[in-house]
Computed example of a mutant assay.
Amino acid sequence: MRVTQGAFSFLPDLTDQQITAQVQYCLDHGWAVNLEFTDDPHPRNTYWEMWGLPMFDLADAAGVMAELAACRKLHGDLYIRLSAFDSTAGWESVRLSFIVNRPAEEPGFRLDRAEQSGRRIAYTTRAYATDRPEGSRYGA
């Protein structure tokens, strides 16, 4: 199963050259770029670990790509997401976000069903990866 979150999620993984082009687009528009990583990509998990601080006032995508390389070196077996924040008045939110790194194996999600009063049924989505403790969900 392939986790699909953010822009480009239904496309094949972007190459570093394509990521660089997207980062440069963000920087050209004055957006701050940041990197985050996690071993639990559940759609409701909005609190990924931040890699360093958001990168403000950069003009060249090379700085972001160097940070991405460093993050991949340490967390290459996890999900890494790149986000671009627009601080312009009226927007003040994320303009672009996409996954730039995935673990070699993506175990997917399970749909748990619970019957409730009457004929109601509640569903919960749970990642198979969370069957293992945090920090050991991917890899050996």
Rank of each mutant, 00 (worst) to 15 (best):
Leu96Arg: 12
Ser87Asn: 14
Val100Tyr: 07
Val64Pro: 05
Phe85Lys: 00
Ala69Arg: 10
Met55Phe: 04
Pro103Glu: 09
Arg72Trp: 06
Arg95Glu: 07
Thr88Phe: 05
Glu105Asn: 15
Cys71Gly: 09
Asp86Tyr: 13
Ala104Glu: 00
Glu67His: 05
Ser97Pro: 08
Ser87Ile: 07
Lys73Met: 04
Gly63Met: 02
Trp91Met: 12
Ser83Glu: 04
Leu82Thr: 11
Gly76Arg: 06
His75Cys: 11
His75Lys: 13
Ile99Asn: 10
Asp57Gln: 13
Phe56Trp: 09
Phe56Pro: 00
Ile99Cys: 12
Ile99Gln: 01
Arg95Lys: 11
Trp91His: 13
Leu53Ala: 13
Asp60Gly: 14
Ser83Arg: 12
Ala69Gln: 08
Glu92Val: 15
Arg102Phe: 03
Met65Glu: 06
Thr88Asp: 00
Gly63Asp: 05
Val100Ile: 07
Ala59Gly: 04
Leu74Tyr: 10
Ala69Thr: 10
Arg81Gln: 07
Met65Asp: 02
Leu96Met: 13
Ile80Gly: 10
Ile80Cys: 10
Cys71Glu: 05
Glu67Ile: 02
Ser93Arg: 14
Ala70Ile: 06
Ala89Met: 03
Ala59Arg: 15
Lys73Pro: 05
Met65Thr: 00
Glu67Leu: 02
Pro103Tyr: 06
Met55His: 02
Arg81Ile: 10
Tyr79Leu: 08
Ala59Thr: 12
Ile99His: 08
Trp51Ile: 12
Ala66Asn: 08
Glu92Trp: 09
Leu82Lys: 04
Leu82Pro: 04
Met55Tyr: 08
Arg102Asn: 12
Asp86Gln: 11
Phe56Cys: 01
Leu82Arg: 12
Ser87Glu: 04
Glu67Trp: 00
Arg72Asp: 10
Thr88Glu: 08
Ala89Thr: 09
Ala104Lys: 13
Pro54Leu: 01
Glu67Tyr: 02
Val94Glu: 06
Cys71Trp: 02
Glu67Val: 00
Trp91Lys: 06
Asp77Leu: 15
Ala59Val: 13
Gly76Val: 07
Gly52His: 07
Thr88Gln: 01
Leu68Gln: 05
Leu53His: 07
Arg95Gly: 15
His75Leu: 13
Gly90Cys: 12
Phe98Gln: 01
Ala104Leu: 14
Tyr79Ala: 07
Asp57Ser: 14
Ala84Ser: 08
Ala104Phe: 11
Glu67Phe: 01
Leu74Ser: 12
Ala84Leu: 06
Phe85Met: 03
Gly76Cys: 09
Ser83Met: 08
Leu68Thr: 08
Ser83Thr: 11
Cys71Ile: 06
Ala70Val: 02
Ser83Cys: 11
Ala62Pro: 03
Cys71Ala: 15
Glu67Arg: 03
Asp57Asn: 14
Cys71Val: 14
Gly76Tyr: 06
Glu105Val: 15
Ser93Gly: 11
Asp77Lys: 15
